[in-house]
């Protein structure tokens, strides 16, 4: 991997959360690169800082979170030195993110249609009617039945799997260059999980999108990722091509992570 053709290059990233009784180092000195069109997986136990990295890339750490060092270069642009207004144009259009908890991520008092359309109107300057028509097409693309009806529903009227699909539709509506998928299937049953992942990676191939896939499940990594980085307590302990890492883990932490779910992986 050389930096010239990487779509995203993160170097020496550190993030702190401040609390009233001191600061928590959530991410320390993390570096990785993602090649265009590839899938890069970030794995690690719960609480190791995966979501924090994703939010740092989008500069969406709220209140207590602060980037204390490092660089994030996306498509040749230094994201950390960008003005907030420019950053806003990148969010949702060039980098989009699928959130971990779809049920909490939609605004409960607006229809899902209006939330898809809002994103389209914002980045493509379309009017509401066209944006809603586009929303229907997008929902068809993510295999939702009767999309004309669904766009008029409120988030609480949809199931977790449907919301996850709507989330994917929103993420893809502006043909982003990078998609961050933060545990896109954590709230779903195994059958639905496979369906959503198939959909996600089919669309990735169609549109040639790079994916940063965040998960705690090495099984998914083995099936879907080209490259993988293993995290423990805020740092990357090992990274490289998926096959070599999963077959010959040099780090004991990686080993234990794989052994935990060994039954599920068919290398």
């Amino acid at each position: 991997m050389n930096s010239d053709n990487a779509i995203l290059s993160v170097s020496n990233l550190s993030v702190n959360y401040s609390a009233a009784d001191g600061a928590v180092k959530a991410v320390e000195n993390v570096s990785f690169k993602i090649k265009p069109g590839s899938t890069f997986a970030l794995v690690g136990r719960s609480g190791c800082g995966k979501t924090t990295i994703a939010l740092a890339i989008l500069r969406l750490l709220n209140g207590q979170g602060k980037i204390t060092g490092g660089n994030i270069i996306f498509d040749g642009v230094d994201l950390l030195s960008l003005a907030e207004k420019e950053m806003r144009k990148i969010r949702g259009a060039q980098i989009s993110m699928i959130f971990q908890q779809p049920a909490a991520s939609f605004n409960p008092v607006f229809t899902v249609g209006s939330q898809i359309a809002e994103t389209i109107m914002l980045h493509q300057g379309k009017n509401k009617k066209d944006a809603l028509a586009d929303s229907v097409d997008l929902l068809k693309k993510v295999d939702i039945d009767q999309p004309e009806k669904i766009i008029r529903r409120y988030p609480h009227q949809l199931s977790g799997g449907m919301l996850q699909r709507v989330m994917i539709a929103i993420a893809l509506c502006c043909r982003p260059k990078l998609l961050i998928a933060d545990e896109p299937t954590s709230s779903l049953d195994v059958a639905t999980e496979a369906g959503i992942l198939d959909l996600l990676f089919r669309l990735q191939k169609d549109e040639n999108i790079s994916v940063l896939l965040i998960t705690h499940n090495p099984g998914i990594v083995a099936d879907r990722a080209d490259y993988v980085a293993v995290m423990n307590k805020g740092s990357i302990v090992e990274q490289g091509e998926t096959e070599s890492i999963l077959k010959n883990p040099s780090n004991s932490y990686t080993q234990s992570l794989i052994n935990n779910v060994a039954g599920k992986i068919n290398l």
């Binding site: 969406l60 209140g63 806003r88 144009k89 969010r91 605004n107 939330q115 914002l122 980045h123």
Partner: peptide
């Protein structure tokens, strides 16, 4: 403001 839906709206580029 601290709820997740605000963060998601910001991630979509909403001002």
């Amino acid at each position: 403001i601290e709820s997740e839906y605000v963060r998601f709206a910001m991630a979509r580029g909403v001002g």
